[in-house]
Each structure stands twice: as C-alpha cells, then as structure tokens.
C-alpha cells in the first residue's frame, strides 16, 4: 500500500504537485493518469524518496521509503528517465543493485530471462534499443520480488508485442496481490489495464475512482436521432414518455439525444408515424473524450489550434 497525504512539491514559484492525498491499494492496478507535465513523475519520485516533498508525506507500507530495510524487496520501480549506466553490462547493473539489498545472485539471471533479455545480459546497454532499455528497467523493478510496483509510462518506446507483454505482466502482478501503480498520459492504455484511476492535472487531484465508476460516470451512453420532421418527432417522443435534448456534440447540429440505447423504440415510433429519419444510432462517449474534458482546464501545454476549437 502507498499512502500520500497532502503531498506538495514546489520548484521555486512553480507548484508541480499540490496537496495530493490518495491511497494506492494492493491487488489492483491503479492507473495514474494525467497530461504531460501534470506531476506524475514527480509524485512517483517523491514516493521513492528521490525528491523531497515541500509539504506532506508519502508512505510505503506505512513508512517513509528511506526507512525501508532492503527497499528493493518492498518496492520495485521503473522510472521514466533513464537510470542505467550505459557502460555497465545489463547483468552487472542488476548485480550491483541486488547485492546492495541482499538479493541472491541467481535472481539476476531469473529476471533477465523473465523480461526476455537472457541472451544479452553480457552486453552493455549503450547498444540497447528503447524497448530493450525499458525491459532492463522492468527487470530491475522485479529484481527484489517486491510487493509494490511503480511503473512510470511503462509502454513508452515498446513495439506492439512489448506493449502486450507489459499489459499482461501488470495484470498478473496485481492478480498476485501486489500493489501496482502505473502512470500513463493515455486514457486508452489505462482503460485496458487499470482497475482504479487516479487522475491529476497541474499537480492537483481531479479524480480518484474505480475504472468502472469512471466509465459509468464519464462514458455516457446515448441515442442520437435526426429528422427533417423535427416537431413531429419530438411530439412522438414526448407522447411515448421519452426525454430528448438537443445534441451539443460538434458536427451533430440539429440532432437530438436520448439517454441510453433507445434505437429500437425510436425507430418503431418513427415507422408508426411515417416520419423520415436522417440519423439514428447508439453512441458511447469515448474515455479519451471524458479524460480530455476532465483535464482540459489543467493542460499546461495546450496547442492553440486545439484550444480555439475546443
């Protein structure tokens, strides 16, 4: 379990993380979602004691990270920034980390095989591709067989096969009862892996909810209908006790929306009254849209074209 209480990080006048309070629980994949620059990496570095919070506390299994004995056996982390000496072989990189935490030497070979780097353990990471580097980072996170895993943008730079592998790994680690905290700036990625979501924007907590709850709340399901006989259609709908509201979606001017999937009812009503329909369909707002809506107030580096249209 990871507990953040009122964690704040200021760099000079800029506040990277503002009074963040949340709990990351075991047995679940907790997605940490936010646009680039929202403070995700800073938060993760504070959990690991690399950055010191300006205020508040970050606790791991009830203690500050620095007080853990053999911390790699409690928390394994893959950070976004490179954290490997390119001139030291993958094997020796893992070996020196293992030795400092009393992890047996054979574990080094095991994790290299586990991440698919078994054949290149004797090579220096300076010749590694982005994906291989990422796998080495994951190997060092798994080295101590920790109960808590922190992955900062783990699929960055991976090919589709690698992405698939990381998703499965993350799911499996959580199913083994571990605490898994994964950051991403992509909602679609989180939708596939996370059970729980913590969303931040400009360092502030925007949402702390289950994935199912987030979908329910944000990914609204609705029926859209458009007809040249607008008045007659609305009469028919209200007779049938259906509430319709004008659509606010871009490109859907003149269309009306009903909550939920009512395509069958609306289609039958229209046929009964011999009304022409130009459009009738069931839609679901994408999670990506929901996420964009949630964070649009807090995006730091927004493209101006996008901002004007939105």
């Amino acid at each position: 379990m990871i507990e953040l209480s009122g964690v704040t990080k200021r760099y000079g006048l800029k506040t990277a993380v503002r009074e963040l309070t949340c709990v990351i629980r075991p047995g679940l994949v907790t997605g940490f979602l936010g646009p680039n620059g929202a403070g995700k990496s800073t938060t993760m570095r504070m959990i690991l004691g690399l950055d010191r919070p300006t205020a508040g506390r970050a606790l791991v299994e009830g203690r500050p990270y620095a007080l853990l004995r053999d911390p790699l056996t409690v928390v394994g982390a893959l950070l976004e920034a490179r954290s490997v000496h390119p001139g030291r072989t993958a094997y020796h990189h893992l070996l020196c980390l293992a030795q400092s935490n009393g992890i047996p030497r054979r574990r080094v070979g095991e994790v290299l095989d586990l991440v698919g780097l078994g054949a290149v353990g004797a090579r220096r990471p300076k010749g590694f591709s982005l994906g291989m580097g990422q796998r080495l980072g994951i190997a060092s996170a798994l080295l101590g067989d920790p109960r808590i895993l922190i992955f900062d943008e783990p699929v960055n730079g991976l090919d589709p096969e690698g992405i698939h592998w990381v998703r499965n790994l993350i799911r499996r680690l959580a199913s083994e009862g571990r605490t898994v905290f994964v950051s991403s700036h992509l909602m679609s990625e989180m939708a596939l892996t996370a059970d729980h979501l913590i969303v931040i924007g400009q360092g502030q907590l925007l949402a702390d909810t289950s994935m199912a709850g987030f979908i329910e709340e944000n990914a609204r399901s609705y029926t859209r209908v458009r007809s040249p006989d607008r008045e007659k259609l609305l009469d028919a709908l209200s007779h049938a006790g259906l509430d319709a509201a004008p659509s606010g979606a871009p490109g859907a001017e003149g269309a009306w929306e009903l909550e939920g999937d009512r395509t069958a009812v609306v289609g039958e009503l229209a046929a009964e009254r011999r009304l022409v329909l130009h459009e009738l369909g069931h839609h679901r707002a994408s999670l990506e849209e929901a996420f964009m809506r949630l964070t649009s107030q807090s995006v730091e580096y927004q493209a101006h074209v996008g901002a004007e249209e939105g």
Binding site: R45, L48, G49, L50, Y65, A66, L68, P71, L72, V75, A77, L79, A81, S83, V84, H93, L97, S100, N101, S140
Partner: peptide, 8 residues
C-alpha cells in the same frame, strides 16, 4: 536514481 532507490 537506481542507486538511491536501492540505498535510500
């Protein structure tokens, strides 16, 4: 970052 994660 790796070193301080291992030896905080």
């Amino acid at each position: 970052r790796s070193s301080l994660s291992a030896v905080p």
